[in-house]
């Protein structure tokens, strides 16, 4: 008789369904008066340190149609590459930047985050990863939330050394993870399926 290891099993995922807005952005779907403002709507304030950028893009399905009923969440480090999180062991995160945002797509499948450009975060073995944000997409028809990362087109040198992009590179799909920077706007389309399908992650 050996000892027992009492691990539990993760609860299975189920689709967020067509009415995900009710639970995640109630004011957006006219359920007003319960909470003052939808969570994750504003990411930055006057006191937030860092370079202001807008991250925007469309979520498209396998037929190229906009996924206009999805919700996108973003998670990123502050301007110095530190996460504002209880699970972050380094101190000194910008207290005026939570690093998390949530945006329902509009009728054209477009999401938009007004945020700051994140600094570099240490990766495996402490070597820096290129600046990136993590994104998580849920919707009707998505059975389990989809995780991806957006890197920046103006960081070619850092991207070339990034350990996660290095894993993607042999597939020839690295470009699907690079947001295109023009001025203060970074455009990042997310294709759920099809020839230019975005790389989704399991980490």
């Amino acid at each position: 008789m050996v000892n027992t290891i009492n691990y539990l099993k993760e609860t299975p995922s189920q689709t967020a369904g067509p009415y995900v807005h009710i639970g995640m952005v109630p004011n957006f779907c006219d359920i007003t008066g319960v909470i003052a403002e939808d969570l994750g709507k504003a990411m930055i304030g006057d006191g937030t340190k860092g370079e202001r950028i807008t991250i925007t893009g469309r979520v498209l399905d396998g037929a190229g149609n906009p996924v206009n009923d999805c919700v996108v969440e973003i998670w990123q480090a502050d301007a110095n590459g530190i996460y504002n999180s209880p699970a972050e062991h380094r101190s000194g995160a910008d207290e005026n930047f939570a690093g998390w945002g949530r945006c329902p797509a509009d009728k054209d499948g477009v999401f938009r985050f007004d945020t700051i450009k994140p600094g570099q975060v240490p990766g495996p073995n402490g070597a820096p990863m290129a600046p990136h944000v993590s994104l998580w997409i849920v919707a009707r028809g998505i059975n389990i939330g989809l995780l991806t990362r957006m890197y920046f087109s103006d960081e070619a040198e850092a991207n070339a050394k990034d350990p996660i992009l290095a894993r993607v590179r042999p597939s020839g799909r690295e470009h699907t993870l690079i947001g295109k920077r023009e001025g203060d706007t970074v455009t990042f389309d997310i294709r759920l399926q099809g020839e230019e399908e975005t790389v989704f992650l399991d980490a």
Binding site: G141, T198, D202
Partner: peptide
């Protein structure tokens, strides 16, 4: 039409995850 057809890219989670 909303299911990725490619396999997920797996890696041991970093600080970002």
């Amino acid at each position: 039409l909303r299911a990725p057809k490619q396999t997920l890219v797996s890696f041991d989670s970093t600080l970002s995850e």
